[in-house]
Design a binder for these strands. Sequence first.
DNA 1: TCATTATAGATATAAAAATATCCACACATC
DNA 2: GATGTGTGGATATTTTTATATCTATAATGA
Lengths: 212, 212
Amino acid sequence: MRSNLAKNSISKQTIRRLPQYLRVFYDLHAYGRSLVSSTDLAAETGLLPIVIKKDLQAVGAPTKLRAGFKVAGTIEAIEDFLGWDNLNKAFLVGAGHLGSALLGFSGFQNHGLEIVAAFDTNPEMVGQEIHGVHVYHTAQLKSVIRSKKLKIAVLTVPDSVVQGITDTLVECGVKAIWNFASVKLSVPEDVAVQQEDIAAGLAELCAKLKSN
Amino acid sequence: MRSNLAKNSISKQTIRRLPQYLRVFYDLHAYGRSLVSSTDLAAETGLLPIVIKKDLQAVGAPTKLRAGFKVAGTIEAIEDFLGWDNLNKAFLVGAGHLGSALLGFSGFQNHGLEIVAAFDTNPEMVGQEIHGVHVYHTAQLKSVIRSKKLKIAVLTVPDSVVQGITDTLVECGVKAIWNFASVKLSVPEDVAVQQEDIAAGLAELCAKLKSN
DNA sequence: TCATTATAGATATAAAAATATCCACACATC
DNA sequence: GATGTGTGGATATTTTTATATCTATAATGA
């Protein structure tokens, strides 16, 4: 029951490394470098040259023979692959600690994401601006999503309410959900969900610590 | 050049799923369930029964034949594996947006982590308490770490300063670093580093969105 | 008592990802 | 001009991870 779209078979791990490459290439570009080899990139990132070669090859990064990858062209290739060449409008539900932190993370501008609205149920929040983003009451979700035609949601709400909110979002035509709650979401097949679990990284760290 | 400690060969992916299992098992325990089958867990988590079986088997979770996994015993097994049965004292450097959000995340108490100090250079922050945690000036890093004998660091500082701070930490005997900055850290072999990259998840979401 | 059934356990297979090896090329150096 | 060298490209291999299949077991219920 897998996706029968070939989807060019670019691996999940490769995709997760792309932002890292992008940051390095931005730096190189700012420094005026026009070419960079996979061995140089390896020194910078801690990855193996072969991994880098294959990853960049996978997104069609342009090269110059015997000289490495073209910096400007590779940035374009990665941004194009991820759809980060244009800003996608998104909204955030749950303007608590984590939500506010995400709103304050200016880095999203470099990552194709522009958060244009936030929602919360806390009366003290509603009507405020957090880092320049207006906070609506969650009751207004439907009308705002529909009027602004938003398709991408960032969820930083408590576990207990996240499925209910998700159902509303799906109803409004939202097609991508970035979920920071620790609950698996039920959504139709055509809605993309990315589950974040902060504890997963901590577990990894603890396991490493133990084995040292 | 791989780790020649056999380290029981428990996979990284399995480790990353353990917190998810732990949450479900806490719930089951709270509801009074004493046994649960992998098929029930599959329905709850969205994972395949076979994955769950192998993961729990890997940490030595106790079972009852034909009836499933023992809830209380499995909690113990996972907590024991991750070292989450005791609270490990940790500290946080960089009490900005993300840092404050992490300090406010009470969930760490369930994840073996107790943040007992925070550090920042912002004079407005220093001396304050954020969610009950005292904020010291970063200049006091060495003395506080040494007097409290802290071994685990959470870094939510800007990319530009993270390596410098890391060097100080290593000098003070810190053995585990959870790094939220987007920079690969250079540390001695005996220091465990877990790199978090928020953009990796976003990249995954964007790729999924594209292929739908 | 006996067949049925749902379970973890064990083993086997498949898929994904990482890594190694070799090659043709164009630049630098002499 | 010749030659050595570092590059991405292509291919092959190994390792890791996910998934499928089969088995013995013990509770259940007729």
